[in-house]
Design a protein around this nucleic acid. Structure first.
Lengths: 249, 249
DNA sequence: CGGTTACCGGATCAACGATCCAGTACTCGA
DNA sequence: TCGAGTACTGGATCGTTGATCCGGTAACCG
């Protein structure tokens, strides 16, 4: 609030010849000047705190101590804010060092970090349905492709491997972030009761239901990941025995 | 338009004693009476035709020849419409017959059908971030769990297998449905050009880029699916050799 | 000092989801 | 046959949203 007050100045400038009464120089402002980075940063904070549907340009502007209109100088649409916020959180995914302990370790680390980010910012799950072309996403995709390529994955298997891994993380993150936790835990309980009540129609689900504990997510995800990695590895082995050093046909 | 006209009746009912001038019996209406099913059906059609963000209660009501208010008698919120529409399209996924050609064939058929639906209704990708508890979704999950269970997948592997498969389909569908096709193909081309322009930062992506042709999606998806199925099968084999017929510890 | 650029925000617009409330048609029991 | 109850409809309206118009102000450059 004081930021907004300080930025507004003393208004009519009629009797305001006194420097002391006027707005201090821009550098002296309480809040740093508005930049695209600051907007995105605050948008992520707001999304983390209140979720995707509570993000409006007005509320975001209020948190930044400016008017909502101002945001549109730095950003074209609200969708831009969402795209930027989505890419911004991918910066948290650490890219493993180049010469690591083998390609499986590197890829596993990347995928796990990716997944951790998706779960740390659950709102991102709902945003994954837009093309991700930001620099942070691309950098991590680049690492993924490079690591696979160096491991010996080539041709159509490369795309399949990269997409398989990506799709698996995204699906998992989406599924788990979707699932009500915390305060909405009653929804979860209600779902379990519903399944139990209709256990004649869904006998297996009611018995071995998908409403797993939090730990099961971890182990299940890790298990599925090893399956995919095993499949990729088997593909490399087959390619190698067909022709270990011979390129092409 | 005529449906709306016919449904409105002759108004004041003062001079309208004549049966011929009055509204024909409800059964004689041009449009069938409004039901939840009809609303959902039309919502799916609207979503298919114009996408998720073009679906509003007003437009939906207009297509149904009623006022927007009326919809709220059959449905509590707009989110209800989306949830119902999402479950409705899952009815298109054919559930393979019980005694099929082995569990792999059955699961493959289900997963492929699932994927086809996601691609046929691209708007559904953006909606997957809400809990899916509708009857159609549950019935297909039931089949998945039952088939896996019958194949010999037990314990934590069951949840892992079911979620692994689901997450993989969802991620794939999301990714592919997201990717601009058809009219937005220029976006795709622009992305490729962008990658090429920044090929120093993303050398591998620019060369073996993820901007695949349509066919590659299919083969890549099938390849990844076999990997997961292989992993599940290997798990079954390991469990069998530990104790082919011994239950429990 | 005049003008150009970068940045800010009050007022405003059209569209949205949702609700209020006044209706209208049909049903069922007496 | 009537009259009360119920199922359903929709015009008007409310608060909120994303976005734009347009008039400002501060810094900088020649």
């Amino acid at each position: 609030m004081e930021a907004s007050e300080a930025g507004r100045g003393t208004g009519g400038s009629g009797t305001a010849g006194q420097v002391w009464l006027r707005t201090p120089a821009r550098a002296g402002r309480a809040a740093p000047p508005l930049t695209r980075e600051r907007i995105v940063e605050e948008a992520v904070a707001l999304l983390d705190a209140e979720g995707a549907d509570r993000l409006t340009m007005r509320r975001l502007a209020e948190r930044l101590g400016t008017g909502s209109t101002t945001l549109y100088w730095h950003v074209k649409t609200k969708d831009d804010v969402l795209d930027l916020a989505l890419d911004a959180i991918f910066a948290e995914v650490e890219i493993p060092p180049e010469g690591g302990q083998g390609w499986r370790a590197g890829i596993t680390a990347l995928i796990n970090g990716w997944r951790a980010v998706l779960l740390r910012h659950p709102w991102s799950a709902a945003l994954l349905s837009r093309p991700m072309l930001g620099p942070n996403v691309l950098a991590r995709s680049e690492f993924l492709y490079a690591t696979l390529l160096e491991a010996g994955v080539t041709g159509p298997g490369l795309t399949a491997a990269a997409y398989g891994l990506s799709n698996y993380v995204i699906g998992s993150g989406l599924m788990q972030a979707t699932w009500p936790t915390g305060a909405e835990r009653e929804v979860r309980r209600a779902a379990r009761e519903y399944l139990h009540a209709n256990r004649e129609r869904y006998p297996v689900l009611a018995a071995h239901g998908p409403l797993v504990a939090d730990d099961d997510w971890e182990t299940g995800f890790a298990l599925g990941l090893t399956w995919i990695l095993d499949g990729i590895e088997a593909g490399i082995a087959r390619a190698d025995e067909r022709g270990p050093m011979s390129a092409g046909r």
